[in-house]
Design a protein around this nucleic acid. Structure first.
Lengths: 338, 338
DNA sequence: AGATATTATGTAAGCGCTTACATTAATAAT
DNA sequence: ATTATTAATGTAAGCGCTTACATAATATCT
């Protein structure tokens, strides 16, 4: 039995319109009556209901975020960026986990139809170009993180470049037999990263040996787990002769890979991908992506688009950076032994 | 210009009540008209608006989660549990980040007043008992994770026990000078864990040496960072004579601590806290908490409470478990050297 | 077939708010 | 003082839905 605007109006001896004006801080209200209303509202524990407001003004001050994978570093960092921006702009965040059991497209479509939010943030969701186009018909503000398409604002990072850099680093060291520790073969970032690896090899005139490309058996979280990294590395280390180095699809996988190296006693130079905070502490060389920045950028352009729906969509593609630490060095383990 | 129930009703040649019945799957509708309505709705891309539904039925099918710290493992795991449960029960999740800039109590109060949700999930939020009681006046379903209080359903884990177990493990090994690598001194779980450490020492008749209790300087995220673990361990390792072992307030801190040990070349047995997935891969002994289970349990009792607001609140306290790996063993580093 | 029970559909009154417009009070200008 | 301005407040019509209640259409039973 919460109070409504009528209760407050009656108790304060004013009309509901005045109460509404007080809470909306728009329209003129005499200072004295504003104070009276506020006092009454405070005593009675009143605050306008979001749902009634949303219906009346057709504006929710809420944005919805779609994300397929919750338990990973990328999500955490992107989320904190989004939260920061949204809080500053006084928007609510509604996180919707898109599961893989059902058609992701359908899930997203359903949510948009229900009109929960003023804008939608797509994170790490990959659709075909024509599917993306379908979303246009809803005429709602959409901003995309970690994927690109010509219809909406998007902020992406060059995955090809990332693995290219890592692979090229090893090539420059004179290695020819460089392994690639991959993940789920149907995951878009995985495909892109693998492409970077292959591109670097081709550019150096090194033939691609499919046997040097391994993934684990466990494909939970698109294969971005310690476990699958461990499994894949076991395979790589059993190759004879041993590859000279290994490029990984992620830091988490690299950690699993390191365990495999410990166990087998065979150590080869390794580069991860993501630059998790922990990477610095375990000396893992890796590829850094400006995740926070991407999240912030995308959120900002989404909020802008809410007020200016007609402008041309913008596409931002960040370049990743190679961060070299000890894991990629040949001396890494001999040092450890010493 | 999205369609409303009126548009669909008109297009399907029925009344809005019928359209509503079709979408609510309650009330009788002839099979043929249901199909007609559904067909029209599908063609016109219609679906009831959540906000209008929420207002009309005074039920939002949405629950709100309050959380002070987003970027940590606990959050990730608890979130995935909550999401799983909520999706199954067809509830939305609204995550609200409670910042430390403003009074957390005020922030939560504000959100509850606005009546966004049918129920509220408090995660890792610690209030005084009398503050908790204040929330009762809102008469909304509340469920608490990672804190206990007599007024609401709560699921907690025995933090004292966790550190007690870890400390006692070292005591049983015959160590007397056991260091404690702590975090933010005003954080409730930190205080509790420290208590467990002290209790174990006292129980063994070992005097507590404040100098053996260290925290880092960097108190971001309540001191639960690699960096502050690194800093604190540096201090511990500079103690002369060197402590015989170290109990940590978290795995993340333990990772920072390990780097400090690497750098200084001084290695002492170490136990973390959290059992991150990664702990297994780096051989970190640690304290395991059933986080997922806690999240699931709390969500379930919240949903139950929505329909049965009057029942007695339940309190669940899980026991943590000690997981021993290589980091806690004296031979750990000599093994590594070999 | 007519009366009765049952099922399907429609009507209209909210849900709690915002906001254009109308009205009244206060202030300024003559 | 009187009128013209401007500021403050009130009235009432939605926003898009749900749902009791009323009514119409069917099916069931003599």
């Amino acid at each position: 039995m919460p109070n409504t605007i009528y209760d407050i109006a009656k108790a304060a001896g004013v009309s509901i319109a005045t109460v509404s004006r007080v809470f909306n801080e728009k329209g003129r209200v005499r200072e004295s009556t504003r104070n009276k209303v506020l006092a009454v509202a405070d005593k009675m524990g009143y605050h306008p209901q979001v749902f009634a407001q949303g219906l009346a003004r057709k504006k929710k001050n809420s944005i919805m975020m779609f994300i397929p994978i919750i338990s990973n570093h990328f999500f955490m960092e992107v989320l904190s960026a989004i939260q920061d921006k949204l809080t500053a702009k006084n928007f609510e965040l509604n996180i919707v986990h898109i599961t893989s059991d059902e058609d992701p497209f359908k899930q997203v479509e359903y949510q948009i139809k229900r009109q929960w939010a003023d804008g939608y943030l797509f994170v790490s969701l990959h659709f075909e170009k024509n599917k993306w186009e379908v979303f246009k018909k809803f005429e709602v503000p959409i901003s995309v993180i970690d994927d690109s398409n010509p219809f909406f604002d998007s902020v992406n990072v060059d995955n090809v470049e990332g693995s290219y850099l890592a692979t090229d680093y090893f090539i420059k060291k004179g290695f020819k037999r460089i392994a690639y520790l991959s993940a789920a073969p149907d995951s878009v970032p995985v495909i892109e990263r693998l492409t970077g690896y292959e591109k670097a090899l081709s550019a150096a005139g090194i033939e691609i040996d499919d046997y040097l490309i391994q993934r684990g058996d466990d494909m939970a979280r698109d294969g971005f787990t310690e476990k699958s990294g461990y499994q894949a590395m076991k395979k790589i280390l059993s190759i004879d002769p041993l590859p000279e180095a290994c490029v990984c699809a992620s830091d988490i996988k690299a950690i699993g890979a390191m365990k495999a190296m410990e166990e087998t006693g065979k150590h080869i130079p390794l580069i991860g991908y993501d630059n998790l905070t922990i990477a610095e502490y375990i000396g893992l060389s890796t590829v850094h992506q400006p995740i926070y920045k991407m999240g912030a950028e995308a959120t900002e352009s989404l909020i802008k688009r809410i007020s200016k729906p007609k402008e041309e969509p913008t596409t931002l593609i960040y370049k990743p950076e190679l961060v070299i630490r000890s894991s990629s060095e040949v001396l890494a383990d001999s040092k450890k032994i010493a």
